[in-house]
Amino acid sequence: MTIFFAILFMVATLVMVVGLGLKIAQYARTPAPLKIPTTPAPLTKPGVAFRLGREALMFESLFKGNKPLWLFAMIFHLGLAVVLIRHVRYFETSVGPLVALVQPLAQPAGLAMVAGLLLLLARRVVIERIRYITGKSDILMLVLLIAIGASGMAMKCLVHTDIVAVKAFFTGLMGFELRPLPTDPLLAVHLLLVAALMIIFPFSKLLHAPGLFFSPTRNQTDTPREHRHLCDWAAKLEEKRS
């Protein structure tokens, strides 16, 4: 089991890092031939950074669009953020200040994350419009995240696992050193699902995380009259003109 998970996590990490890297490179490389910020838009680059920051941290547009959904999404993402930070302790030999800070929040955050996911799942079933647009993969993604959260919470609150050994396994793995992983079924399920999530990340709608920062309607300045915006393929058309 140790060897299986060691290989799985190396593969999963590789797929996620390379996959995401390729996707981000694709987004960065693809030209944006026209200025299409959704206006009113910021006029300066710091203004754009502030707009993106508000979108990433506060979900500004979603707040305008749908308050209950905003709340559910906030509950889930904030919970997830704390849980992720909290999990850093399994990868570092000495616990950092941020991890220590969120330590007491771990349990409520885990609950919030799962509760948020359940609310998000419920609206996919209950609201007619959302049911209509929901595909199998949308449900599966939520179920996957719920299962990860639930298995994690179960280990935290009900059937404790040997987290010292888990930490040893992962810190070891980071130095390509094999240390035994506890043979705990709940842990196995949790890790298996996390690895699955990492592997599908670059091929799924989870791309919304890096994608937001490449969205031309949000990341462009509103300066088309001041500065001529011309991408490479459009510039080639100009050569034909003159």
Binding site: N66, A73, R123, G211, P216
Partner: peptide, 21 residues
Amino acid sequence: LSKYRSLQVFMDICVKCGACT
């Protein structure tokens, strides 16, 4: 898709949250 970043990014990143519905 290779000429318009908007199209490429928008194809990938929708989570079907339904805020637009």
